[in-house]
């Protein structure tokens, strides 16, 4: 029986124009719909598949502001069994170092054989959290996985690399991050959505998770944003319809721009 914790992040709607708030220089999360980070759906799917094959349960953990429970509910409606919501005003503005610390502490409140994350959150896109978490927990880092196999207490993944892939082996417990090549996330069924409403979600604040408030939040962040400015949008380009000479016209454009 395996217990898998999936870490998920709530992010602004993928399609929405994103911006930083001018006063706090943090992400404007009010102006668009919050959604579950797409990549994390692949993490949930993989966890569900693994527990379907080997038995066990899936716990979904998120750290986020009020309302981040929506991301947890989405995961529960896909089939995860229970949730942990880590939420506290003290956590607002945490950078990756602090986020990984807070998640590591929250993980300390539960038992697990495997932690699965997405390989990147679509808003900040740092890809730092999974490796930081492995480092903090002292667990094997099996990141950018396009395939995961478990055999008893041994885990093998294909890790996508610049040159192809590495086959990586470790013993459980371990930290895995997945890429979007790994599976096809299921849609929540109506039954799943109804069932999710009754599934338990434990709410943790900083104290309950054993987090030292002095180490998290914007004031404690190891990185600070000094300023931010929106770039003017790209100016509209030229659009031509191919009437048999589209390639020639394009060549003229490339030539005028000195590419040929």
């Amino acid at each position: 029986m395996m217990k898998i914790v999936v870490c998920v992040k709530q992010v602004p709607d993928t399609e929405a124009e994103k911006r930083l708030l001018p006063d706090t220089l943090t992400v404007d999360r009010e102006s668009s719909n919050p959604v579950l980070n797409e990549m994390d759906e692949f993490a949930i799917e993989e966890a569900l598949k693994l527990t379907e094959a080997h038995g066990g349960e899936v716990v979904v953990l998120t750290m986020g502001p009020d309302g981040a429970d929506a991301a947890v509910r989405k995961a529960l409606s896909m089939g995860a069994h229970s949730g942990i919501l880590l939420s506290d005003p003290a956590l607002a503005g945490s950078d990756a170092v602090a986020t990984s610390y807070a998640i590591a502490q929250a993980l300390g409140t539960t038992e697990y054989d495997l932690v699965i994350l997405g390989s990147e959150a679509s808003d900040a896109r740092t890809s730092l959290v999974p490796a930081m978490l492995a480092e903090r927990l002292g667990l094997p880092q099996l990141t950018f996985a396009s395939k995961v196999e478990i055999d008893g207490t041994s885990i093998t993944v294909n890790r996508l690399t610049d040159y192809g892939h590495d086959v990586v082996q470790a013993q459980l417990p371990a930290v895995v991050s997945v890429v979007e090549k790994i599976n096809e996330p299921r849609y929540p069924s109506f039954k799943g959505i109804m069932a999710a409403k009754k599934k338990p979600v434990a709410e943790l604040d900083v104290a309950a998770a054993g987090i030292d408030a002095a180490l998290v939040g914007q004031a404690a962040a190891a990185t600070t944003v000094v300023d931010a400015a929106q770039r003017p949008p790209r100016s509209a380009g030229v659009k031509v319809t191919d009437e048999g000479d589209g390639g020639v016209k394009l060549a003229e454009f490339l030539s005028a721009q000195k590419f040929i």
Binding site: G237, K239, D242, G247, V248, A251, L254, S255, I260
Partner: peptide
């Protein structure tokens, strides 16, 4: 993609791409 494009060609890539390729090779 056209929203980003400085230069967009509406057309079949199997016509446009070989033509621009030939044109580039000719001009070289």
């Amino acid at each position: 993609i056209f929203e980003l494009a400085d230069y967009g060609v509406i057309g079949d890539l199997f016509k446009v791409v070989p033509q621009v390729t030939d044109e580039i090779l000719k001009r070289k």
